[in-house]
Amino acid sequence: MDVKDGRTVKGVNFVDLRDAGDAVELAAYYAEQGADELVFLDITATHEKRKTLVELVQKVAKELNIPFTVGGGISTPEDVGVLLNAGADKVSINSAAVRNPQLISDLAKRFGSQCVVLAVDAKCIDGNWEVYLNGGRLPTGIDLFEWIVKAEQLGAGEILITSMNHDGTKNGFANETLAEISEMVNIPVIASGGAGNMEHFADTFIEGKADAALAASVFHFKEIEIPELKKYLKAKNIPVRI
């Protein structure tokens, strides 16, 4: 869920919610539908408004009985401390970790690896996977595989990989690359970017060897309903909580 100034944005269009922008209500809806974890990405532009994120995290934690991750603009251990104290289970870091990899180990030491999710946006050009920042607009010159190995060594507890080549295409996840990464590291890999139908989820668990799959718009627009998706995956012998 993308949130801005404490409210969900981007195409959330439920008829059965009183307020489609109410992140707490939406979170409760997904929890009830059987989502296993939720991720909130704060896209609030200004630093002053970040206080609303902390308030949101608190409200979500009061309401929700499943784990959730909060990300977006986190750059210091202090930021993380505030969010965890408000009730977040994990935080995801992205640009700040690329600019200062030491942040990963600082967070792992202070809060434990289990709550440090490294989010990576990557793009493949001519067969080379490169780490990008700013939602895929800013190339870093850093090789995706090298970055992930380094992040694991520094203490990242999970890796959330979004393929910019697949994101928004609805043609499936970047399974070949995900499988390569999943075999390379000993921490869970979350696949993101490309979900269009239920088969894509099965594919990313089987071919992509992903430990979890993340999607937004297919759920927001009810193109896929979570209970139906989980039944489908179970029928394919993929272990899911129903």
Binding site: A61, E63, N65, A86, G87, A88
Partner: peptide, 13 residues
């Protein structure tokens, strides 16, 4: 030692 908010909230629910 860690996040006790969640445990507190769970009882409050």
């Amino acid at each position: 030692a860690g996040n006790i908010q969640s445990v507190k909230y769970a009882f409050e629910r």
